[in-house]
Write a protein that binds this DNA or RNA. Sequence first.
RNA 1: GGGGGGAUACCAGAGCGGUCAAAUGGAGCAGACUGUAAAUCUGUUGGCGAAGCCUUCGGAGGUUCGAAUCCUUCUCCCCCCA
Length: 376
Amino acid sequence: MQFDIMAKDAGSNARAGRIETAHGVIETPIFMPVGTAGTVKAVHHKDLDQSIKAQIILGNTYHLYLRPGLETLERAGGLHRFMNWNKPMLTDSGGYQVFSLAHRRKLTPDGVTFQSHIDGSRHFFSPEHAMDIQRVIGADIIMAFDECTPYPCDYQYAKKSMDLTHSWLKRCCNHFDLGQGRYGYDQTLFPIVQGSIYRDLRADSARIVSDYNCRGNAIGGLSVGEPIDKMYELTELVCSILPHEKPRYLMGVGTPENILESIALGIDMFDCVMPTRNARNGMLFTSEGIINIRNLKWKNDFDPIDPSGTIFVDQHYSRAYLRHLFTANEMLGPMIASLHNLRFYLWLVEQARAHIIAGTFTSWKKSMIPGLTKRL
RNA sequence: GGGGGGAUACCAGAGCGGUCAAAUGGAGCAGACUGUAAAUCUGUUGGCGAAGCCUUCGGAGGUUCGAAUCCUUCUCCCCCCA
């Protein structure tokens, strides 16, 4: 994997770059649709590729390990071939499940025992195991196994959690270096900065992570309920410490506004379930404002879903029709909304990139924010 | 023609003398959702309001301190036998 910075914004820390992987190029800043279980929910790969223009998608170690399981993934020749997605892919390590499935896992210095949300069976994940599983899945970029620190969190626990993540990072790197890609192409490991909302912890973590000299770095443990200003403050701090010549990935973020603000702070990569999950729940993001398509006000609105939208569904279907699909619980509704939201997110980062290159990013961002946060 | 059952909020449907503005579903309306246990979850649905007050359980009348609940009658619906 290689990263090149093509342009830097004058008025902020935003940059436009290019990541080259074995499965193709990613132009940054980029948003990565989340495909937890080997599918970006409700979206065909053809649409993901040609209409949404996704450049890289996510998979999840924990979910794929449980289903379909390693044997099937290995026999298939890895997740790329299993799901027939030939572009770049990234897998999360299961570190987020340490947080989101906190009530059904047991954490020890050695690793985490999860109780499956599917059948209740118990499975032990160590940092080494997380590396092995991600080797079998075969994503181009894989993530270190961490504890996504919960919020709120007192200083003592935040420190302990961060130290644990660091000790696991060492084990991840050691184990990762011993292995190799099993399908004939290289994989890259990204470490993850933790430290909750504490500036000194975040700074320590950023320095420690930087020292591993990986080819890209991630910031985790944010957007877990802390005030948004805190998230920006800590992102800015961590970006100032992480190496500038390597891609920075802000995990789990966020709203369209969060993404533009974080690009300005120096983030290159994002992922979030928001465009897909919220789409399935009837929320559409547009440059003019946020639409809750189930609301009565759209019942007889026969205008296109998003007149300035850049995917076929935006002009092809009316708001009234989409509302009808949601009201009637028709599966086409969530499908259309998912196509719309993902294209909007990809369009947004494409625009950000173009404006960084053109030198107009800061003013463009300022002009965009009101429309991104307004409720229609 | 004879016998029986029933009418409850938008719909379906509990309740069968005070703890009932009335269970529970559905539908409706609104909100939430940030490295996906999520096509999920939460709130709300007689009227005005902060507690509280006011009008409701097919219509009319009655019994009672008190009625959605008991009695009389009217209207309408369903079932069975001829």
